[in-house]
Design a protein around this nucleic acid. Sequence first.
RNA 1: UGCCCAGUAGCUCAAUCGGCAGAGCGUCCGGCUCUGGACCGGGAGGCUGGUGGUUCGAAUCCACCCUGGGCAACCA
Length: 787
Amino acid sequence: MFVPTNVASTDRNNFVYDIIDEDLAEGTYGDRVATRFPPEPNGYLHIGHAKSIVLNFGIKHDYADRADTQCHLRFDDTNPDTENPEYVDSIKESVRWLGYDWEDHLYFASDYFEQFYEYALKLIRQGDAYVDSLPEEKIREYRGTVTEPGTPSPYRDRSVEDNLDLFRRMRAGEFADGEHVLRAKIDMSSPHMILRDPLLYRIKHADHYRQGDEWCIYPMYDYAHPLEDAIEGITHSLCTLEFDNNRRVYDWVLEHCLDEDELPSRPRQYEFSRLNLGYTIMSKRKLRHLVDEGYVDGWDDPRLPTLAGLERRGVPPSAVRSFCREVGVTRSESRVEMRQFEHALREDLNPTSRRLMAVLDPLKVVATNVEEGTVEQLEGDYWPRDIEKDETREIPFTRTFYIERSDFREDPPDDFIRLAPGREVRLRHGYFFTCEDVVENDDGEIVELRGRIDPETRDGTAPDGRSPEGTLHWVSASEGRPIQARVYDRLFDVPAPDDGDAPFTDHLNPDSLVVKHAVAEPALADQPEQARVQFERQGYFWPDPEESSPEAPVYNQIVSLRDTWDEDETRLTPEELERRRKEKQRQKEAQRKRSQEGKTDPVELLSDAQRERFARYHEELGLDREDAATLAGDNDLADFFDAAQQTYDAPQPLANWIVNELLGKLEERSVGALPFGPAAVGELVRLIETDAITNRGADTVLNEMMDGGGDPQAIVDQRNLRQVDDTETLADVIEEVIQEHPDEVARYRDGKKNLIGFFMGQVMQATNGSAKPELARELLQKRLSDA
RNA sequence: UGCCCAGUAGCUCAAUCGGCAGAGCGUCCGGCUCUGGACCGGGAGGCUGGUGGUUCGAAUCCACCCUGGGCAACCA
């Protein structure tokens, strides 16, 4: 079991953690934090799911010291057509592999079928659900489109008795598939398609892998999911962005199924963006296609982003966890570069993998001054000097050995620091070697290199102090052991194989798997079972768990070493960076133009009646165009504005406040739902305009009014928000702030003038936001420029 | 031509109540080195999608616009 690190819990904050912090502070759920990972057992898990698993189970660990936490593994198995136990097992296995433990919180949505049914009866009795007998196409037709409202089904107004009877008979199996459905009665004309009477249940005479033929009606996701969360006492229900729309039904279901007293602590859904990785695909359907059509070797093919594939490839689960923490949790869609994942792998593997030598693409080398048949045992450290581990192994050196074919160039470029004719290199853990001859076959292919070692350099240093630039790995020809090395590259050769019109299989990278007949030093056979090792200068490898055997070792490359010399087409050269920068600049410029061209006068968006009101606001009251249009465009808001003028007749300041401040705090509420009326706002604006309070003080007052109403003047008195415009008082405050922040003062005087904002912030904070800002700023600037 | 979501460094993300625009990756330069790895030091890279507004002060609030994505399954 892994122990979460402090880094993970304190540094890796995200908006979900902010929400949990707040709920904990307010006691929304007491001291409970319950999350869940709810896969449907219809496929294998992939790296995208890992993000969700790490988020959900990570919360359980990160909050364990502050709250009563749990994370459920729940199979969302409400569709009998696609689900089966094989997937259940593989999912459990992958969650465990990632290092997480659901303890005794293993659940199946199918266990709740009876409860779902009871809740459905409740909805019907409340008049919130009805049985619709329209055929499928008609339902679709009646739903309307994104631009046209839907029309109610003729069955929408069936009596509660009829609905109850029909629904019971649906369950009893009296009807064929598709004859009836149960629908929520919400709003067929809602601009949110999802609220146009969503389906709750459909008839499906199918065997369920856990329930058998017990049921012939099955609940839909939108209905089942919120109830599953509520039944299990989930507090924060985290899912991906595409469920954003569904949240409206989620809330509706809970608000109509749960009792009044359960609502304050009901589960809430929050969405985050799913993980997209470059050069691969993440859709279950497409992954299945690759497996079924034989493009890859099963769900656990090491090239696949499935967790089973990563496991087989040798990726350490700890690396997947830290990768997921690194990419973070946000609501903005993004595509993470593969190199970010590779970096996480290397970071994990570097301190934990022994170094060994293996030549993947062997080129024969003969050291002519070494006697034939002698085997000299050299000693080699398993760990580089910067890793504090001290272990060695013996490495046999012989007259004939292999080096990497790519480590020799007959005609080397300037910056090539490896072997070339006449050039000396260091053999890792061994002698300096100079190449003297190149032997080619009839085709002109290099088949052998000949040269001499310097016997004085056995310990890696020369008596005369010379030191070759390059160091090569090598393996004795007679003592080395043949192994098969499978070198993997990205599965696709484009960053986004999902995009575009061409079938995604067109972008398959033909070189995603290269099998090498390699040779490794003998010590490789002495490693613990399934040990991950680094083949020096190449990458990290481990034995394939399925196909490797002591007699015929097969090694998978987990990830290559970072290589700053080899040409890599995905490498970001300075030119490429410059190109991208310019490209971005161009796009911004183009966008600017388009946004200017597309700009419309907000007045054009008004109806005729609203225009009349706009004209009055703009021409008679003298409001500026935008404010007038914004107010006129919202009848409730405009009424509110008109009423507020009765209290305080100052149109433009009132409009400013209502549009710029009140509107921002309203969010989804309407002005009618506020705990205070227009008179209070009129009063508030009067306080500002008469210089009784500052804008910032007014903001504090408004916030308090948003929570519980109240009289502005009373709040001002109670919270002591009266504006401070007394020079002496302010000077004292400023003096104090300056004394407390000598560093910032120095930096300000050094030229970092925008620190004035910082100082203003301090002054405002010290005065509870009631310092007269213009005066404070003036005094501050004066005081700060005094040397 | 509806509703919802999102635009901050090349990439992924931060930025407390509106108050100093930062970090990791990548990149470049230097150091160290028996891995062209790792490590250490330093640099470059930003009109916070745009325009206007509110404010002493806007990445953050308001309006309009631009770009990208999601939603019209008896899938989840």
